[in-house]
Structure formats: C-alpha cells, structure tokens
C-alpha cells in the first residue's frame, strides 16, 4: 500500500508527450471537482470533529462545546477513576470474548453445512442471511418482548415449561445468574451470523475441488480431516477478516444493550449491562458533559485500534496459500 503507489502517476505522466503543460490544468480541475466533496466532507466530519473532540477532552466542557476552560488530564483521570466506566469496559470485553468466538463458529459451521447441500442451497442461504436485513432495534424488540419476555407465554418460558420448569423466568431482569447475557448474545448472533456465513461460503467456494480429491487419494476420507487439513487453512484470510470485523463491531455495541436493558436517558440504565458507548451516550447527552464524553471516545477508540493491531499481529504469522492463489 505504501511503497508501490507512486509508480502509477509517474507512469501516467511519462506516457504523454513532454511539454503539454496546457493539459495539466484540465486534469487538476477535474481532479479537484471529483475529489473535493469527499475531501471536504471527511475534513469537516472526521478531521475537524476528531481534532475538536481531542482538544475538548482537555477542557471542562459541561453544557458547552466551546474550548477555553482547560483542565488538563482531569477528564481522563475522572473517567478512568469512575467505576461505572471501568465496569463498562469490563462488560464490553466479556461481551466481545463471548460473541466473537460464538459468531465465528456458528457462521463457519453454517457455511460448511450449506455448502454441502445439493439442493436448496440458495433457500437455506437466504434463510440464514435474511436476519441481516433486520435492525438491532427490531431484533431487541422481538427478543425482549416475545422470545425472552418474562411472562409465561414468552417463547423461552413456554419452552422451559415444556421441560418441566414451572416458574416464569425474567430473562432480561435476571442478574443472578446473569441470564440477560443469553438474551444479548443470541440477538446479536441472530442478526449478524448470516453476514459472516456469506463471507465463509464465498471463501469455501473458492477452494479448488482438486485439493479435496487429492487428499482423498492420499487416504484422508473423513469430513473432519478434510476440514482440518484443507478447508480451515484455506480459509485463513477470510477468518482473519471475520475476526477483525467481529471485534470492531462488538466493541461498539450500543443498540441492543440500549433497547433490551432500557439504558435510555431517563436513567433506568443498569450498571451491569452498560457498554462504553452507552456510558458515553449518557455522559454526553444526559449530563451534557462533552469534555468527559470526548475523552471517553478517545479511550474507546484507542482500545479498538490496539485490539485490531494485536489481532493483525497474531494473524500476521505464517501466511498461507490463500493469498498466492
């Protein structure tokens, strides 16, 4: 990405006869016209926003977004000293540790399964993929009010009743044991598994069939061995991409926590199910403390960047066949 790029414009220029200076201006004008909207938009909504937010994080900015009341590292100190914030970091770490491997395994498993079907592949692919059309809000709504509702006629409670459990369980409200985790993890699982299954399915279909035939000739008959020795190593790049996306998305979880645990501005939010983004939402929009909110945004951003870099480090070892092919 870094070293090869300059070759292109140079090559383009050298193809032209020298001394066509007049031709430069139309090229510049076209370049400016085409890139300006994007550059200006990113400048205002990313660069200015992040720069301003960064400065604001060193200000006492309550009820104001103006700079001027500098307080050094106070916001960061207060934030990291607030048990509610550190607890939200623990919550999101736990959530990430749950949701990433579970989604990964389920989407890979479904991809393998769907790929084995002779008929009806498209039908089942659509079945698993279509929840991706549903918003987190609607998912949370169905999970909270029907699937895991605390009434005896909720789906989970009806099933529990069939299994001999007579008392209705308050899934969302259950803190000990923390059954609400089941609600939070399964809703995200339902919403995003299909998306990653599509990625794995495409990866699987790119694996040359000869590899499997050759392995069978060599005596590797069982499905498990074929998966271990061919499918899994050949899916390496897809797996890395999937884990990366899963981590980034999990860290920014907001919608389902907000809607299932009712963490809205009225302060009904539960401390045990608050994610960093919910904490920041309440800090910035509830308390109007934009300095602390900005500081928190940078802490969370740094965590995501560190996590993705770490993951890239892990995945960087021993690259295999996929990228050569």
């Amino acid at each position: 990405m870094t070293t090869t790029a300059p070759a292109r414009p140079a090559a383009g220029r050298s193809r032209r006869p020298s001394g066509r200076r007049a031709a430069r201006w139309p090229a510049w004008r076209a370049f400016l016209l085409l890139t300006l909207p994007m550059v200006a938009g990113l400048f205002v909504f990313k660069y200015v926003a992040i720069g301003w937010g960064f400065l604001l994080s060193f200000n006492d900015a309550r009820g104001t977004i103006a700079l001027g009341d500098w307080n050094g590292l106070d916001n960061y100190r207060r934030l990291l000293g607030d048990p509610a914030f550190t607890r939200s970091l623990v919550t999101i770490l736990l959530f990430t540790l749950f949701i990433v491997p579970v989604t990964f395994a389920l989407s890979l498993g479904l991809a393998v399964l769907v790929n084995r079907l002779r008929r009806g592949r498209a039908l089942f692919r659509t079945t698993f993929f279509i929840p991706a059309a549903v918003s987190y809000v609607v998912g949370a709504l169905v999970w909270k009010m029907s699937l895991f509702s605390g009434t005896p006629s909720g789906v989970a409670n009806s099933l529990a009743y069939l299994l001999g459990h007579d008392d209705a369980i308050g899934w969302v409200a259950a803190v000990d044991p923390p059954l609400y985790w089941i609600v939070l993890v399964t809703v995200r699982l339902w919403l995003q598994t299909g998306f990653y299954m599509i990625l794995f399915l495409a990866g699987i279909q790119q694996i040359p069939a000869q590899l499997y035939e050759a392995a069978r000739v060599d005596g590797a008959e069982s499905e498990g061995r074929l998966f271990r020795h061919i499918t899994w190593p050949m899916l390496r790049n897809t797996s890395v991409a999937v884990v990366l996306l899963l981590i980034i998305n999990a860290f920014q979880a907001f919608d389902e926590f907000y809607n299932i645990l009712a963490s809205n501005l009225s302060g009904l939010g539960r401390a045990d199910g608050r994610t960093p983004l919910i904490y920041l939402f309440q800090t910035a929009l509830g308390e109007q403390n934009y300095g602390a909110g900005s500081a928190g945004a940078f802490v969370v951003t740094m965590l995501i960047v560190v996590f993705t870099l770490l993951q890239g480090r892990f995945a960087g070892f021993g690259r295999t066949a996929e990228e050569e092919g």
């Binding site: 660069y47 926003a49 992040i50 907001f254 945004a297 969370v300």
Partner: peptide
C-alpha cells in the same frame, strides 16, 4: 488523507461528530 479516516471506528467517535 481519505483512507486515514478508516483507522477511526465510526460509532466510537459519535460525540466528536455530534460536537461539530
């Protein structure tokens, strides 16, 4: 200039964007 913005996760920076 453009791709550098991809480093920053979108949702996490909603407060700075809200400020602007």
């Amino acid at each position: 200039f453009i791709i550098a913005t991809m480093m920053v996760p979108g949702a996490a920076t909603f407060i700075p964007t809200f400020v602007v």
